[in-house]
Amino acid sequence: MKKAFSAHHTLADLLIDLQMAMQACGVWDCETPTLQALQSQEPFCIDTMSFEQWLKFVMIERFRVLLETGGTLPTRCHISPMAEEAFKDKPQESVAILVRCLDLIDQHLSNPS
């Protein structure tokens, strides 16, 4: 129980860092996707929304629900490479920080200690 509790708290902290990195990169204030867009079955909802929309309204929201309910966290995660591609037109210093936040989330979920 204590281990799961700690994993949830770590993820909560990482999500706060991700939000701040997205704000610094200028990708946090994005349009809310439609309900239809949220129904996409494609990875990252790539067919219906931008990557920043997916991060904010799908990934972060799903993680928040898991944190609030004490749900089981995923055991595999590999999101940062998609961010590198999606944000290649943004200032690279900001993107590097954002990608680092996603790397830490990827590592935390893929290598639970």
Rank of each mutant, 00 (worst) to 15 (best):
M1Y: 13
M1F: 13
M1H: 14
K2Q: 13
K2C: 10
K3D: 15
K3R: 15
K3L: 15
F5C: 11
S6M: 09
A7E: 03
H9T: 08
H9S: 10
H9Y: 00
L11V: 00
A12T: 00
A12D: 02
L14A: 02
L14E: 05
I16A: 07
D17F: 00
D17G: 08
L18N: 00
Q19C: 09
A21T: 05
M22D: 11
M22T: 01
Q23I: 14
A24E: 15
C25P: 02
V27D: 01
V27S: 05
W28M: 11
D29W: 00
D29Y: 01
E31C: 04
E31V: 06
E31N: 01
E31M: 05
E31H: 07
T32L: 11
T34V: 07
T34S: 14
T34W: 03
L35C: 07
L35E: 14
Q36L: 11
A37V: 05
A37P: 10
L38W: 07
S40V: 10
S40A: 12
S40R: 01
Q41S: 13
E42D: 14
F44L: 13
C45L: 08
I46D: 13
D47V: 12
T48G: 04
M49C: 06
M49E: 06
S50C: 02
E52H: 11
K56Y: 08
F57R: 02
V58H: 06
I60D: 03
I60L: 05
I60Q: 01
I60G: 09
E61N: 08
R64M: 09
R64L: 09
R64Y: 08
V65Y: 05
V65W: 10
V65S: 08
V65C: 10
L66V: 05
L66H: 06
L66A: 07
L67F: 06
L67K: 09
L67E: 01
G71I: 06
G71W: 07
T72I: 12
P74T: 03
P74I: 04
C77W: 04
C77H: 03
H78F: 14
I79V: 14
I79W: 10
S80N: 11
P81R: 06
P81L: 01
M82G: 12
A83D: 04
E84F: 09
F87Y: 12
K88H: 15
K88C: 14
K88R: 13
D89K: 13
K90F: 15
K90R: 15
P91M: 07
P91Q: 05
Q92V: 04
E93S: 14
V95S: 10
I97A: 12
R100T: 12
C101A: 11
D103S: 02
L104A: 13
D106F: 03
Q107N: 15
Q107Y: 14
Q107M: 15
H108Q: 02
L109N: 00
S110Y: 02
S110G: 05
N111P: 06
P112W: 00
S113Y: 12
S113A: 14
